[in-house]
């Protein structure tokens, strides 16, 4: 089964990449953008018996850096 891991920067952590994207969108003439935050999407294809606990551990041990990032696990 497919699992999506959404990794995003914690609120309050400055996001230079998000700011650059914001700047570029402004430059293209799009208006009304208040903020941009860039994150990462990791898709896993796992066996049915892989538990939520195991997925959680994968995130904490490797997929997200808990100092600066949050993660959200979504089973398809």
């Amino acid at each position: 089964m497919k699992v999506q891991i959404h990794v995003s920067l914690k609120p309050g952590v400055l996001d230079p990449q998000g700011r650059a994207i914001h700047h570029a969108l402004d430059g293209l003439g799009f208006s009304g953008i208040n903020d941009v935050r860039a994150g990462r999407l990791i898709e896993l294809d796992v066996d049915e018996n892989v538990t939520d606990e195991a997925l959680d551990e994968m995130c904490r041990k490797l997929l997200a850096n808990m100092v600066i990032e949050n993660y959200r696990i979504e089973r398809a």
Partner: peptide, 17 residues
Amino acid sequence: LTESGLLPGALMRNAQL
């Protein structure tokens, strides 16, 4: 070393990119 937990904190993309 920060990723391994031996040192605190994290190193992010340079602010000016």
